[in-house]
Simulated assay, not measured.
Amino acid sequence: MARRSQSSSQGDNPLDPNYLPPHYKEYYRLALDVLTEEGKESYQRFLADEAAPDFLCNSEVDHIIQNLQKPQYANQEGSTDTAGDNDMDGSSGTYWPMNSDLAVPELDLGWPMVFGFRGTEVTTLVQPPPPDNPSIKEEARRMIRAAQQVVAIVMDIFTDVDLLFEVLDAAARRVPVYILLDEMNSQLFLDTAAKCRVNLNYVEFLRVRTVSGPTYYCRTGMSFKGHVKEKFLLVDCMVVLSGNYSFMWSFEKIHRSIAHIFQGELVASFDEEFRILFAQSEPLVPPANVLAKAENAFAMTPFGSNMPFFPKKAPLMFQRDDNLFPSFMDRIDPDRYFLSNFRRDDMLRHTVEGSAMRMYKKVEMENAQMDPVRGFLRSKQLELDAF
Rank of each mutant, 00 (worst) to 15 (best):
P286F: 04
E282T: 13
K40T: 12
A51C: 07
A171H: 00
M248P: 02
E138D: 12
A386I: 01
R174V: 14
G264E: 07
S223G: 00
T94N: 14
S250L: 11
Q10N: 13
G93Q: 13
D16S: 10
Q10V: 09
D12L: 15
E252P: 00
N67I: 00
P326A: 05
N67L: 03
L339M: 08
T210K: 15
N199Q: 14
V126C: 12
L382K: 10
D85Q: 11
P128W: 04
N18H: 12
E353G: 02
V150L: 06
Y217F: 11
L377E: 01
L188E: 13
L180K: 03
D333V: 08
A172L: 00
L233K: 04
K137V: 13
N201A: 08
P176H: 03
I276P: 00
E364M: 13
V175L: 02
Y19E: 08
D182F: 01
R3C: 13
I157Q: 09
E38F: 02
V104K: 13
R344H: 10
T123H: 12
Y202P: 00
P71D: 00
F387G: 03
P326V: 03
L241Q: 01
L284C: 05
T80A: 13
L32G: 07
Y24I: 05
N133I: 08
F298W: 09
T351A: 12
V285Q: 14
A193R: 02
D87H: 10
Q127W: 04
D236W: 01
I258P: 04
A314Y: 05
L125D: 07
D33Q: 07
Q149F: 02
V290C: 09
G110H: 03
P97D: 04
L277C: 05
L339V: 15
V239K: 10
T120M: 06
P129D: 04
G110Y: 03
P21H: 08
V290L: 15
K380Y: 10
D62Y: 08
F189C: 01
V235P: 00
V161A: 12
G354Q: 02
R3M: 12
D345R: 05
L47W: 03
Y43F: 15
I258N: 12
L188I: 02
E26P: 12
V267W: 08
N185G: 06
H260I: 07
R4H: 10
G213I: 02
L291Q: 13
D346Q: 01
A2M: 11
P71N: 01
D333Q: 04
H227P: 06
L163Y: 03
Y28D: 09
E41K: 09
Y19G: 09
G116S: 03
D182W: 02
R173W: 03
R349C: 08
G110E: 06
H350T: 08
A297C: 10
E50R: 09
Y216A: 10
D191V: 11
L284G: 07
D89H: 08
M357W: 15
A152L: 05
P176C: 05
A294W: 08
G304E: 14
P128Y: 06
K312I: 07
E41D: 14
L316K: 11
R378I: 04
F328A: 06
D162P: 03
Y95N: 14
F262E: 11
E265S: 13
A146R: 07
G39Q: 05
P128F: 05
V228H: 00
H260R: 14
S340C: 10
